[in-house]
Amino acid sequence: MAARDRRARGGRGFGRRGFGRSHEARTGWMFLSPFVLLFALCFLAPIVVSVRAAFHRDLPTGGGLYGGGELVETFVGVENFAQVLATPALWAGLGRVVLFGIFQIPVMIGLALLLALLLDSEVVRRVTVFRLGFFLPFAIPGVIAALLWTYIYSPRLSPINQVLGAVGAPIDFFHPQMILVSMANMTTWTFAGYNMLIFLAALQAIPRELYEAARIDGASEARIVWAIKIPMVAPAALLAVLLSIIGTIQLFNEPTVLATVNPWMGNDFTPMVLAYNAMTGQAQPSGAGPASAVSIVMAVFAGVLAAGYALAQRRLAR
């Protein structure tokens, strides 16, 4: 144990060994560079294009009913931002995703953690069936999941309501008061097993001797979970929560699927739905400029939330 602690804090081998700092930097970058290049190509460059678009607008210049059949990209300053910030649908959408995240993320992460701990316990020896079974929903393509849930939630065909209806308590999954719960269920179904796998991998990376040592010291199983396992999955859990926060702000698939059979949800139920439909010209405001502006607002919002969570987490951990 002591040795472990030292190696965790003892710094990185290089400094002590006396290799030059620049050598270490070069080696570090050798490992970083492939990803950094790809990231620059696939993320940074498009983001730069997109941010630029947020300050521009394609405007007709030709005059007449159809603007002369030619659009010219025009610099409009912060006009797009002013417009999207004044769009009530954006704020309503942000409100919805925040509400959604407040109950969905804890439930999903909690469920994932519970299942991972159970599978890592001594009770279950053969975990394959469970691991695969929990993960399978993530492997179902979105287009099929759409079909699946519109059927399962369908007022007329729902197999769930066939059962619940028999006892006189059918659920209206599409009711405006219910729709967030229905969406949360879809998200949890898809991603709980995914997060479970992350936690399970972290748990299984813990050297088993730690448990033995603890048991010899007389620790109960509950104590081992609390004092060893939970702290060891904490970094993975932090990451999972951060990504869930970001994913929730970008919630898109579930509202899009449900809106096909619930037109009252409109084309702007969540900020991401608004951004996508603005991009494809199917919502107001319309066009690449406003779409980019919406996504930048979302990114800032998600960034603030994620940073806030990370800070709070750090403070709590102390």
């Binding site: 700092r21 970058w29 498009p46 996508y276 996504s295």
Partner: peptide, 27 residues
């Protein structure tokens, strides 16, 4: 490794995640 710029890379990656990927597909 003590890689100079390593922290910046991590921040950039996190910032990259914040941007909805569907909007980046066209660029």
């Amino acid at each position: 490794f003590k890689t100079p710029g390593g922290a910046a890379v991590q921040v950039a990656v996190l910032a990259g995640l914040l941007f909805p990927i569907a909007l980046l597909t066209v660029p």
